[in-house]
Design a protein around this nucleic acid. Structure first.
Lengths: 122, 122
DNA sequence: CTTATTTCAGAGGAACTGAGATCC
DNA sequence: CGGATCTCAGTTACTCTGAAATAA
């Protein structure tokens, strides 16, 4: 992922953050941090970099004085779309030769692994 | 892995390097770098930290003037053994509920994935 | 001469702990 | 007051590129 994303100027953690914002526009810094299992302080650094490069912007939440809502900029959405395509190509290569049944079995097994490790959200 | 290894004073990259040295005692810096897909310059930093904390030591290779042979110290082997145990516990938790057939299928599928991505060594 | 190995120097992104301010 | 959120300050480990010295 690092190798593929570098030409786009993205790191793997940045890709994960952008994907989380895409999934939940207006997400708070604290929620982003919990979602990728880092501290809120670490997330601040990531978010600052993404704001500086213009891929996201943040606005004050009108109903919660302290919360900042993160959203993708036009450019952020464009870059993220390119990243998705690059990574999908790798997925396709990685899964070549698998039957549909084998794909399903693998996905189900991995999902069970993640649940066993304590994440109920998958 | 980060969370589990931190109490031992190890990072995940450091664990990987120690494991590689355990697997191939006397391995060179360049080989270590290739094995975990980082540059030789990055590996220098890792090795310096592991030497500083006394987990590895390096000696000149008698037959190749420029090569440095890395080996675990007594303490390095002890710490690594503890790390293996901690990580094995996680593996056990992650795989709970899997039948032997399901384990075998999962391992075979993942091995195929890695080969598909270009690593012939698995 | 070419290639491989090691290493220094400089840079950047990412993670942590500690501490504090703000808001509900 | 308690709990959640955001952020600053400082530190550390990791990784990169560029450059260079040494050895096979």
């Amino acid at each position: 992922m690092d190798e593929l994303l570098r030409p786009l100027g993205l790191t793997t953690p940045q890709y994960n953050v952008l994907s989380a914002i895409e999934h939940t526009p207006g997400i708070s810094n604290a929620s982003l941090a919990r979602g990728v299992f880092v501290t809120a302080q670490s997330m601040v650094g990531l978010v600052i970099n993404l704001e500086r490069t213009g891929l996201i912007h943040r606005t004050d939440d009108p109903s919660h004085g302290r919360v900042k809502r993160a959203e993708l900029t036009r450019e952020g959405a464009t870059v993220l779309a390119k990243a998705h395509v690059l990574l999908a190509d790798v997925d396709k290569r990685m899964m070549s030769g698998f039957s549909q049944n084998e794909r399903d079995d693998l996905q189900r097994s991995l999902r069970t692994c993640v649940r066993n490790l304590g994440d109920p959200s998958v």
